[in-house]
Design a protein around this nucleic acid. Structure first.
Lengths: 125, 125
DNA sequence: ACAATAACGGAAAAAAGATTCGGTAGGGAT
DNA sequence: ATCCCTACCGAATCTTTTTTCCGTTATTGT
């Protein structure tokens, strides 16, 4: 696991929340599991743009943070399943709130974002 | 401004939200301005752990994204003020939700986080 | 024996983000 | 004259996160 050089600050609530749902694919992974997509291969099929390695690493970390719980049946075909813990379920409303706000303001942010890159291109100075 | 190499994906609401409130100091800066701390120097005094340069850059970006609006009175002592736009005010409930969830689960996350680093130290393989 | 699938992880590179260092500029106070 | 304050920005560097590449193990189907 990666060893931090700068001590992370978990005093502020926002930072605590970002620790769980921040990152490029975190919320997607949690959302998939909440929708009953429990196996790693299924999650990968659900989010094909995310590299398998990244999903694997996030699953490890979310398990360590007790957001999800792992269940392995050694049988065949080699079955691993992940489920949300109670704690994990408690983030769902937050993810829903972020998703709702984001979707409501998607067009505006996309527009501003596009304007920013155009501005950068048209002002080579 | 920084030029992305990988196209950012603003299709998903969560990513749109993270574009505005993600990042180490974004929410803190927006929160400060919402509390009436309008000048850069004031914001820096409010968040002394954040380097001045970082705050400056975020202010630029938040302005470009129209989350905040800038007002300059050329007079003296060289006064610049930032205010939330209507759009900016619309993120406040989201930041409040993140902060509330984070504060409610702070102790648990801190505990899990500590357990993770200890685990890493005690298992040198 | 050989491919296919599932789960997983090491290592290094790439990308993104944060930080430090230094510099600009205008004016005020001593 | 010299130092301080305010606002600001370029560039290099460091840290963190994401990605790519390539392995391992185990079992099933052909």
């Amino acid at each position: 696991m990666y060893e931090r050089k700068i001590l992370e600050n978990l005093d502020c609530g926002v930072n605590v929340a970002n620790k769980i749902v921040g990152g490029k694919w975190r919320a997607c992974i949690i959302d998939s599991i909440s929708r009953g997509i429990s196996r790693p291969s299924g999650i990968q099929r659900e989010i094909p743009e995310a590299p398998a390695r990244v999903i694997q690493m996030h699953l490890r970390e979310l398990e360590a943070l007790q957001v999800i719980r792992k269940e392995t049946s050694g049988g065949f075909p080699l079955k691993t399943e992940y489920f949300l813990t109670d704690f994990g379920r408690s983030v769902l409303p937050l993810i829903a709130a972020m998703d709702a706000w984001g979707n409501a303001n998607k067009a505006f942010v996309q527009e501003m974002s596009a304007a920013m890159t155009e501005e950068a291109l048209n002002a080579p100075s």
